[in-house]
Write a protein that binds this DNA or RNA. Structure first.
Length: 221
DNA sequence: GCGACAG
DNA sequence: ATCTTGTCGC
C-alpha cells in the first residue's frame, strides 16, 4: 500500500520531506511495549548485495514473533538503506497481530544527511514511534561514554542532538541509540536500555534470531 | 583524485 | 548485512 521509492532520486526527495516534518513527540513510559524488526539476506559473499536478493524479515514484540520472506529492493548504499529494506521491514511489522508501542529498527533516524534515516522513515510509513539502533553513527559524532551500564554520551550532527552512544553493558562496545519517528535522543536511550540484558536489546535479538532461523529452514518457497 | 560510508 | 577460527573471559 505505502510507497517505498524504488529510485534514488525519489527516495532522496521523500527523505527531505520526512526530515522536515515535526510529528508529535512520543514519550517512553515504563511498561511500554517495545518491539523490533530485523532483516537478513541470503548468504553469498561480502559487499553491498544486489537487487532481488532473498530476504527474511522478522518482527518481535512480547511473546509474538512473525517472519515474512521478501526481496531486496536495491544493493546497500549508505544513506539509502530504505531502498533495500523498506518494503520487507514494513511487511513484517504489519504481520504482527498487535503493533508495539515503540519499534526498534536497525538503522539511524535523525542521524542522516537529510535527517531521515530508515528508522525514522519506517516509523512515518507505519505511523508508529521508532528508535534507531546501530553499531555506529552514520553522520553524527561523539566520544564514547564511560564503561558502565547506562552511561551515555551525545551524538551530534550540525549541533543537533540526534542520538546517544549508549553503554548497554559494561565491557562491551557501546551501541548508538537514535532519535527517529516521534522520538528524541533521550527516549531512544531509555527504550533501548529498558530492554537490554545482553548488549543488544532483547526484541532485536529475538527478531534477528527468528529471521536467521527462517533463512536456515530447509523448505524455502 | 581519494577515502569514507547505517545495513 | 555477510564472510569466518580461534580465543579470551565469566
Amino acid at each position: 500500500m505505502s510507497a517505498w521509492p524504488h529510485a534514488r532520486v525519489e527516495l532522496i526527495e521523500e527523505q527531505q520531506r520526512l526530515g522536515a516534518l515535526e510529528p508529535p513527540a512520543w514519550r517512553f513510559r515504563r511498561g511500554a511495549r517495545v518491539g523490533a524488526v530485523f532483516v537478513c539476506f541470503a548468504r553469498g559473499g561480502t559487499g553491498p548485495g544486489n537487487t532481488g536478493d532473498a530476504a527474511w524479515a522478522a518482527a518481535s514484540v512480547g511473546d509474538e514473533a512473525v517472519v515474512v520472506p521478501g526481496r531486496a529492493g536495491a544493493p546497500y548504499e549508505a544513506g539509502l538503506l530504505a531502498l533495500r529494506e523498506g518494503t520487507v521491514l514494513e511487511a513484517a511489522v504489519r504481520a504482527l497481530t498487535q503493533p508495539p508501542d515503540v519499534l526498534l529498527v536497525d538503522g539511524t533516524g535523525r542521524d542522516h544527511p537529510r535527517r531521515a534515516g530508515l528508522a525514522l522513515h519506517l516509523g512515518g510509513v507505519l505511523d508508529l514511534p521508532t528508535v534507531g539502533v546501530t553499531h555506529r553513527p552514520l553522520a553524527a559524532e561523539g566520544e564514547w561514554p564511560a564503561d558502565e551500564r547506562g552511561a551515555r554520551s551525545p551524538l551530534l550532527l550540525a549541533g543537533e542532538l540526534v542520538g546517544y552512544w549508549l553503554r548497554t553493558r559494561a565491557g562491551t562496545r557501546p551501541l548508538a541509540a537514535h532519535a527517529a519517528w516521534r522520538t528524541d535522543a533521550g527516549t531512544a536511550a531509555e527504550a533501548v536500555l529498558s530492554t537490554c540484558r545482553a548488549r543488544t536489546p532483547e526484541p532485536l535479538r529475538e527478531a534477528r534470531r527468528r529471521a536467521r532461523e527462517a533463512r536456515a529452514a530447509p523448505v524455502r518457497r
